[in-house]
Design a protein around this nucleic acid. Structure first.
Lengths: 416, 416
DNA sequence: CGCAGTCATGTCAGCGCAGTCATACTGAAA
DNA sequence: TTTCAGTATGACTGCGCTGACATGACTGCG
């Protein structure tokens, strides 16, 4: 077969061309390119120089064929689960940069032909050395998928059962996040907290609900019936219409920010004030959360920390097949208090705590850090729902005020 | 070298194993796997059966090495430009499914070490047959990047100059989208429309601004000074604080929805009502746009249509290096009228049109389709800003009302 | 001084597939 | 019948790299 046209004109240089130019063996070029030890500084320099001269690029297909490793990690995303400016996917992308691996992302939407299993299959087909998967893995089928498959798995948000060989997990703090927001509401004096949960097939949904439930139990509060949404603002809106008629509802914890936004919208439409009549918290701290009206109290997902920790441990599992897995680190929990929460209206009675001034009093704007030393959200918001200035919405990646022409990573950008 | 352990136990089957089992040559297996012609139905069946029996998976690295083609397409994303539930990236993912190609995504954030050029480089390094890139390509350096590189390029949102060999473009409708929202505001009777633009290095930003400018000119309206943001809600908020003092401002077109949301928030904080005092439109129709208060009038980005059209033409360019490029299709333009726009306050005078009833009158809720026969947004919103029920927010992909347990693709989902 | 251990480099084969070319068989046109 | 274009299959080779192994140079130590 004739040599293939490579990049640029003619033919791509190969390692043997570099070797000849540098006056070394092809193997030495290979060693240099792979950063192996046992190459003298002199030869290393000559090889790199020759490679530079020729514009040499290592052929990854050939390397994969020869070595049996692709140096790529597959990621299965579910709908938009991993997407967004602050997301695990972006965290993974950042984390993967220095590892020598690249990411291969396959997106799956619930209900489409390609399921999770199909996505995993497609990744294995393409050849990946490891797979990252997030919610949901339904318990029967997909659980042993991870175990059956012969590459290491990183399962984000999976519970303890998934501690099989070469399976690592990360991000098991959802119920801690839920606890933080629930306790925030109880601290404000609400008798109890209603919950708008996510789809129950998702671990994240169940985990958040468990955190809420456990917190209520720990405080000896009554547990109201749970509403279930589908993570979308639309489903939050529907839930809000259901709750709006019930005057006992003074505080609602929505399992994510989108549902919280839809829920608030429904409350406002039905004439209930937020937070004077009903306090609402979300979970995630999406970029617009600080700018909706009222600005949303929420708890930030530790995307970057979780992604980085998880990826590091996955790579470890890939490169040390027989070693013990590295234990997961506990990511930080950052509550961001904005203007969608406040004390309950005067009529409401707190079982365990003092009843605070009801009505129009606004929350002290304050970001609190739980179980971590990181501080957050320096700019605080206060006042009634229409008035407060939103605080910068990403503060661990500090809300740098951006001049025209610069674009912070938190911004949603246009596309065509 | 010893055979490598493959998937499952032991060793992965190779095409030669399939060949032996089926009693044919390796080449015939190759032909079947690649869907080539000139294989009898009988042999094809035997081969597929044998492959099934052995659990054969084609080794993509070996194929890439032998054929010189990787069957993968690289995508460069900029910050979150391509992300999100409704996004070009998801459109590309859907579109790529049946092409036999896979996507390799490299994300870049403005200001990080990896620039666009670095991302392209990294993709070429990994070996891709084509590259998709979106905004921005800055005019000097990156322009000829596309041309210098030896694989076909799809540039999303690029203007006509980029019609070099093997470069195709798509999504050149930004100024039509801008025109749609600007005309909507003028139709309501506003004397003129202010503009909050995106960063001027982005084609999308300039294109949107041009659409706005041309529309004003066509209607003989004064062109107010332009504000510039960075696509983020935070920058929209800052712009809103600047505009709030100016009583001449009755209508603002923000170049994307996030900035519009931040802008509305700033107006509300400073005591201006939306839309009674100021009408605000965005651009994109992000999922929460229907649920913020007031629900946002915007124009939908034709993500799927653009992605599909662009990808189809890129694949054509890859597979037919010498053929003429397929011309781009004009994607639809869908204006979604919600509650953030209305007639100007009584004092304001429209130069070219009748002055409509000012103050609290609300817009007729209606989704309008421009330059296309597709209908959109059946549910309409009306009434003052706090009251209207939001309409389902994705209507071309119809806003199916979702029961618990199902998750529509428009929902933002949790991650751990 | 001899030998083991470490470091530095090279030789060679083959990873699994698809391209090229050869070959054989079919049916219709000459 | 011969010819020829089209159809169907196989033999062989090499894509560019890295693993296994060989080998030599050097070091330190008894």
């Amino acid at each position: 077969m004739a040599r293939l046209a490579g990049r640029g004109t003619g033919t791509a240089p190969r390692s043997i061309d570099v070797a000849r130019l540098a006056g070394v063996s092809q193997k030495t070029v290979s060693r240099v390119m792979n950063g192996e030890q046992y190459v003298s500084g002199d030869l290393r320099r000559r090889v790199l120089e020759a490679a530079e001269t020729l514009g040499y690029r290592l052929n990854h297909a050939a390397r994969a064929l020869a070595s049996g490793r692709t140096r790529s990690i597959g990621v299965v995303t579910l709908g938009t689960a991993l997407y967004g400016p602050a997301s695990l996917l972006m965290g993974l992308e950042r984390a993967v940069r220095d590892t020598g691996y690249t990411l291969r992302v396959v997106n799956t939407v619930e209900g489409d032909a390609l399921g999770i299993a199909g996505a995993v299959d497609s990744l294995l087909d393409q050849g990946v050395d490891g797979i990252v998967i997030s919610e949901p893995i339904d318990e029967e089928g997909d659980a042993d998928l991870a175990i059956r498959v012969d590459v290491p798995f990183l399962i984000l948000g999976a519970p303890p059962p998934f501690t099989a060989h070469r399976v690592v997990t990360a991000g098991l703090v959802a119920h801690q996040l839920a606890r933080a927001v629930t306790e925030h509401l109880l601290d404000l004096g609400h008798p109890t907290v209603h919950h708008l949960a996510g789809p129950q097939r998702w671990y994240a949904a169940r985990d958040r609900m468990e955190g809420w439930r456990a917190t209520l139990a720990a405080h000896g509060r009554r547990e109201p019936p749970v509403l279930v949404g589908d993570w979308s603002a639309a489903s939050g809106h529907r839930a809000g219409l259901e709750l709006a008629g019930d005057r006992d509802v003074t505080a609602v914890f929505a399992a994510n920010d989108d549902m919280a936004i839809g829920l608030i919208r429904a409350l406002l439409e039905t004439g209930r004030r937020v937070p004077e009549d009903v306090s609402v918290v979300g979970l995630d701290d999406i970029p617009v959360a600080a700018y909706v009206s009222p600005p949303l109290t929420t708890v930030r997902q530790p995307f970057d920390a979780t992604a980085e920790d998880g990826l590091r441990r996955l790579v470890h599992a890939i490169e040390n097949p027989d070693a013990d897995p590295i234990p997961a680190e506990d990511p930080p929990v950052n509550l961001v208090v904005r203007a969608s929460t406040g004390p309950p209206p005067s009529g409401a009675v707190s079982v365990g705590g003092a009843v605070l001034a009801g009505g129009t009093a606004a929350p002290e704007g304050r970001a609190r850090t739980t179980r971590t030393t990181r501080t957050t959200a320096p700019g605080a918001s206060d006042g009634p729902s229409q008035v407060p200035a939103p605080q910068p919405n990403r503060t661990t990646a500090p809300g740098r005020l951006v001049s025209p022409g610069r674009t912070p990573s938190g911004a949603r950008q246009p596309t065509a």
